[in-house]
Amino acid sequence: MTTTADIENMIARTALGDRAAFEGLYAATSAKLFGVCLRVLGNRAEAEDALQEAFVKIWRNADRYRVNGLSPMTWLITVTRNHAVDKVRARRALMGAGLDEAAEIPDSAPGPEALAVASATRGRIDDCMGQLDPDKAGAVRRAYLDGHTYQELADHYDVPLNTVRTWLRRSLLKLRECLSHDG
Rank of each mutant, 00 (worst) to 15 (best):
P72S: 03
G42W: 15
W59N: 04
D133P: 10
V36T: 09
N9V: 06
V67M: 10
D86L: 10
A114I: 01
R44P: 00
R66W: 12
T74W: 10
N61V: 02
Y65S: 04
R81C: 04
A21Y: 13
D133H: 10
D133I: 03
Y65V: 03
R44M: 00
V67G: 00
Y65A: 05
Y26V: 11
E48D: 06
A84S: 09
I105Q: 15
A28D: 05
G123F: 06
G96D: 12
V36M: 05
A102Y: 13
P112E: 14
Y65Q: 00
L132E: 05
M73G: 07
Y65F: 15
D107W: 05
I77F: 07
R91F: 06
P110F: 01
C128G: 06
L76I: 00
T121V: 08
K32E: 10
A27G: 12
D49I: 07
W75L: 02
D100C: 10
A114N: 06
A31N: 11
G111R: 04
P72T: 00
A102D: 09
R91V: 02
R124H: 07
L99T: 07
L76N: 01
A15K: 11
V56N: 01
P112S: 13
V88K: 08
E8S: 11
G111K: 03
N43H: 13
A54H: 05
M95A: 11
V36F: 09
N68T: 11
R44E: 00
D18K: 13
R13Q: 14
P134G: 07
V56E: 09
L94M: 13
P106E: 12
N82D: 05
S30Y: 07
S108E: 09
A27L: 13
G24W: 05
T29H: 12
G24K: 15
N9F: 15
D126W: 05
F22E: 00
R124C: 09
G35H: 08
C128K: 01
L99F: 06
T80V: 03
A84R: 04
V79H: 01
R60P: 07
M73D: 00
K32T: 12
F34Y: 15
E101K: 15
P112Y: 12
D18I: 03
G24S: 15
M129A: 02
T78M: 09
E46M: 12
F55H: 02
R81I: 01
G24P: 06
D100Y: 13
G96W: 11
G138W: 03
R60C: 09
F22M: 13
N43Y: 14
T14Y: 15
V140T: 05
C128A: 09
T29V: 08
A54M: 04
L25N: 03
G111Y: 02
E46K: 14
S30G: 08
D107Q: 15
L70K: 14
P72G: 02
A62M: 02
L94E: 00
A15S: 14
A47D: 01
A139S: 15
E101R: 15
D86I: 00
R39S: 00
S30A: 12
I105V: 13
S30M: 06
A116P: 02
A93W: 03
A93G: 01
G17M: 09
A84F: 01
A90T: 07
C128D: 01
I77Q: 10
V67T: 11
Q131N: 13
R122Y: 00
F34H: 12
A103H: 12
